[in-house]
Design a protein around this nucleic acid. Structure first.
Length: 500
RNA sequence: GGCCCUGUUGUCUAGCGGUUAGGACGUUGGCCUCUCACGCCGAAAGCCCGGGUUCAAUUCCCGGCAGGGUCACCA
């Protein structure tokens, strides 16, 4: 744990009310890492009587996926991390979606351009690639833009821009000196040499701001006082500090939290761990348990207390109790916490919880519709529906049926299934996980990969249900839900890889 | 590779110069018990390494090493 010179600013003090924010990007499923950062922002805001802002960073046209903004709201709501200002609840510093703030960024870029703190760059991608290749070949310690367009006469640059020549706007980073900032979670100031800092692109050629620009401009105009985010941002913080300086604004206080890790210590990723908040929700982890578990990853209430509520965390929160060594996200411990909490409930409470999601009437009815024509007695429904529940399924009874598709090895079949799971994420329709979309996608997938639908579908059926006979594969998948299917497909991928 | 961050049992952590280094998950032995689970009792397992500073370093300083992050017109 850090201490010393910074002890004073580490303490939570009075003064103007803090304003903090989380700024997720609507790409894919809401990530537990986002929830983790949100928790610390939320707790800090509540502790200090400050304001917790939710801002949507949707400046990347390429990666934007429909529906994921709503998914972020849903995930955060499930956890109970309510924000005070945001796209859905409004607030005095809106709008809270970056795509709705475009004029502001352009205006601010113009200011920088006028001050000479930024410049237009007309370099083509090809030239940029060349420069990079050369730097790599020369083993240059300095990787990045070479400043070619710094020399372009500003008046000339305006003319070219007005003539419609494609360009970006870059920050003019000082070539000399250092940029340093204080990270209030670490004892020493963090220092970067300016010559190693790239002339960051501020405005892309499509007129959208980059993260760096939008982030700084928004944090400033939204009055953000404390930036609490993941450690992955430390290296870009000097760019942000330089930007604040270029604008003549005061920078907020920075707190970089350690990154959640996989068991092998790499940054938590969906290849190695379930990372969707919905995965945990749908498999029946309790939101308060999730929160308590995540809180323990970097925050400690005291020597021998690890089970506590968010309210208790708020009550005792202090930055001196936060550690930053990237913690491994250990699902086994989460599970143990969850089991404890389930045990602590009354049967009535448990019954209530079950009805909220696991036994939600709409969900049960969807299952019954599938089982109706396949079951003879009412009492058979429950065992028949078993594969709609739980995480992994037992493949022992169908082990001999779990084999490579014709013409492929086990390993190749494993990769095929893995690709299938990944491509679902990238397909706009399939990602929604409705039966028709899944079917269309799956048939198209078979065609593209030259696999017989019959074979792939059986493999999927076995993976998802652990049975050779089931209701329509795609209805089954849709009802099981994306995360449950993904878990099971992953199980089979792992198994198939062990085959020749 | 350059730069940056981090470094207490396998994992999450407490510790802030002197402790039998504490707790939790996991592993493991036993008790309880019709079984399982729960519960209870016990065990193994840790201060990354090397130099300093000090009467005394897990703790402070320096250097290594290891892990991670980052080097985009992605965030």
């Amino acid at each position: 744990m850090r201490e010393g010179s910074d002890a004073v600013s580490n303490a939570i003090s009075e003064g103007p009310k803090p304003r903090v924010r989380i700024a997720p990007s609507p790409t894919g499923d809401p990530h537990v890492g986002t929830a983790y950062i949100a928790l610390f922002n939320y707790v800090f805001a509540r502790k200090t009587g400050g304001t917790f802002v939710l801002r949507i960073e949707d400046t990347d046209q390429e990666r934007y996926t429909a529906g994921s903004e709503a998914a972020i709201f849903e995930a955060l709501h499930w956890l109970g991390l309510q924000w005070d200002e945001g796209p859905d609840v409004g607030g005095p510093r809106g709008p809270y979606r970056q795509s709705e703030r475009l004029p502001l960024y352009r205006e601010q870029v113009a200011v920088l351009l006028a001050k000479g703190e930024a410049y237009r760059c007309f370099c083509t991608r090809d030239r940029l690639d060349e420069v990079r290749k050369q730097q790599l070949a020369d083993k240059s310690p300095v990787l990045g833009y070479d400043g070619h367009c710094r020399a372009v006469d500003p008046a000339d640059a305006v003319r070219r821009a007005e003539a419609g020549e494609a360009h970006v706007v870059r920050l003019r980073v000082p070539r000399e000196g250092v940029t340093s900032f204080v990270d209030h979670l670490r004892s020493e100031p963090i220092v970067f040499e300016n010559r190693l800092v790239d002339d960051q692109v501020l405005l892309k050629s499509d007129g959208f701001p980059t993260y760096h620009l939008a982030n700084v401009v928004d944090d400033h105009f939204m009055g953000i006082t404390h930036v609490i985010r993941g450690e992955e941002w430390i290296t870009s913080t000097p760019k942000h500090v330089l930007l604040y300086r270029a604008f003549g604004w005061e920078a907020p206080a920075f707190y970089h939290l350690g990154l959640l890790r996989n068991a092998d210590k790499s940054k938590l990723s969906k290849r190695k761990n379930p990372v969707s908040v919905f995965h945990y929700r749908d498999l029946g982890y309790l939101p308060e348990t999730m929160l308590n578990f995540m809180a323990n990853l970097g925050f400690s209430l005291g020597a021998e207390v690890e089970r506590f509520t968010v309210a208790q965390m708020i009550e005792h929160f202090d930055w001196s109790k936060v550690s930053v060594g990237g913690p491994v996200f250990d699902p086994a411990k989460l599970e143990s916490f969850n089991a404890d909490d389930i045990r602590a409930m009354s049967v009535d409470q448990l019954y209530e919880r079950l009805q909220e999601r696991v036994l939600a009437p709409a969900r049960i009815k969807a299952m019954l519709a599938q089982a109706q024509e396949r079951v003879h007695r009412l009492d058979d429904f429950i065992p028949y529906l078993s594969f709609f529940f739980g995480g992994s399924v037992d493949y022992a009874p169908v082990r001999d049926k779990l084999k490579p598709v014709s013409g492929k090895s086990g390993k190749e079949t494993a990769e095929l299934l893995d690709t299938y799971a990944q491509e679902i994420e990238r397909d706009n329709a399939a990602r929604s996980f409705t039966a028709p979309a899944l079917e269309a996608f799956s048939r198209e997938f078979c065609q593209r990969h030259a696999v017989k639908p019959k074979e792939l579908f059986m493999l999927l059926r076995l993976a998802v249900t652990g049975r050779t006979a089931s209701p329509s594969l795609f209805d089954t998948m849709a009802i099981c839900g994306k995360d449950r299917c993904r878990t099971r497909i992953r199980d089979v991928v792992v198994y198939l890889r062990t085959l020749a």
